[in-house]
């Protein structure tokens, strides 16, 4: 089907979501070419108000807020997408395999996951980041690991209902290998809830990164990301300035846009 006709058939919420996501994607990809200043360039005094030169004013070090907002898209979205993706690969594959294989493999894996889940998510992430250090790679892996436990649980519980069906049994008795069972018999039947979870999980990961940055363990300065931009400029709110809310709104709007599209996608399959 033509992309344009699909777009026309979408609900208006999904269309809005697509447009917003495209906008974010544009910001992330072409960030350096459209910003008036660079990420780290100091262009004025601390906390300058909105002006013709600095559209959204300057931050606590005198860097341009508008430019940093656009650079933040690249850093924050990129890492969130990567972490969510990794979390789904780890958690999803293990969950589906555990449901298919069953037995001690499933038992051991599930207890390990239970152990990981018993530590509150943010505390767990903080702990691991303090142990391994706050490099970008560590950040991605730690968030993916912590989130994959939730996805493992979901994937396993959804798959449990499918692995007992006659068609799975027929495939087993045929002598099919694990890869075929999981990828071709099981996965198509559990895709819908996993995709819905992807939308939701992406937003949670996003918030986790922002919270970690806000706490100082996420992306390290001088890299711009929306969470730390809120933290660095939070004091402005007490002066009645709304600027620190703009990066926060950027997070919120993206979360809503992603879920609009996921909702539409799931409604399609019914």
């Amino acid at each position: 089907m033509n992309i344009l006709t699909v777009f026309k058939q979408m609900s208006w919420t999904a269309r809005l979501g697509i447009i917003l996501i495209a906008l974010y994607a544009f910001m992330a990809v072409f960030g350096p070419y459209i910003t008036p200043y660079s990420e780290t360039q100091i262009v004025g005094g601390e906390y300058d108000p909105w002006s013709a030169q600095t559209w959204l004013g300057t931050d606590n070090l005198g860097r341009d807020m508008f430019s940093r907002l656009i650079f933040g898209a690249r850093n924050t979205i990129g890492i969130a997408l990567l972490s969510t993706f990794l979390a789904f690969v780890i958690g999803g594959v293990l969950g589906l395999v555990a449901a298919t294989v069953g037995g001690w493999f499933e038992a051991v894996l599930s207890r390990i996951v239970d152990m990981l889940m018993s530590v509150p998510q943010l505390i767990g992430a903080l702990l691991l980041l303090t142990i391994f250090g706050t490099s970008l790679l560590n950040l991605v892996f730690v968030i993916a690991l912590v989130d994959s436990t939730r996805i493992y649980r979901l994937a396993k519980s959804v798959a449990m209902n499918v692995v007992v069906t006659d068609y799975m049994e027929a495939a087993r008795v045929r002598g099919e290998g694990l890869v075929w069972l999981v990828m071709f018999e099981l996965l198509p039947n559990v895709k819908a809830p996993l995709i819905a979870e992807f939308g939701l999980r992406f937003c949670f990961v996003f918030l986790t990164i922002s919270s970690l940055s806000f706490l100082g363990l996420g992306l390290q300065p001088p890299m711009a990301d929306w969470g730390s931009m809120v933290r660095e400029n939070a004091s402005l709110i007490s002066f009645g300035d709304l600027t620190p809310l703009i990066p926060a709104a950027a997070i919120g709007v993206l979360a809503i846009a992603v879920n609009f599209v996921v909702d539409w996608f799931l409604a399609q399959r019914r």
Partner: peptide
């Protein structure tokens, strides 16, 4: 533990055709 030839020799047809066929294939 059966060989492929042996698996092939014995096939099943199920009562509920609804659940015996993968709905996504």
């Amino acid at each position: 533990k059966r060989s492929r030839e042996q698996l092939k020799a014995v096939q099943m047809i199920y009562q509920m055709a609804d659940t015996a066929l993968n709905p996504r294939h």
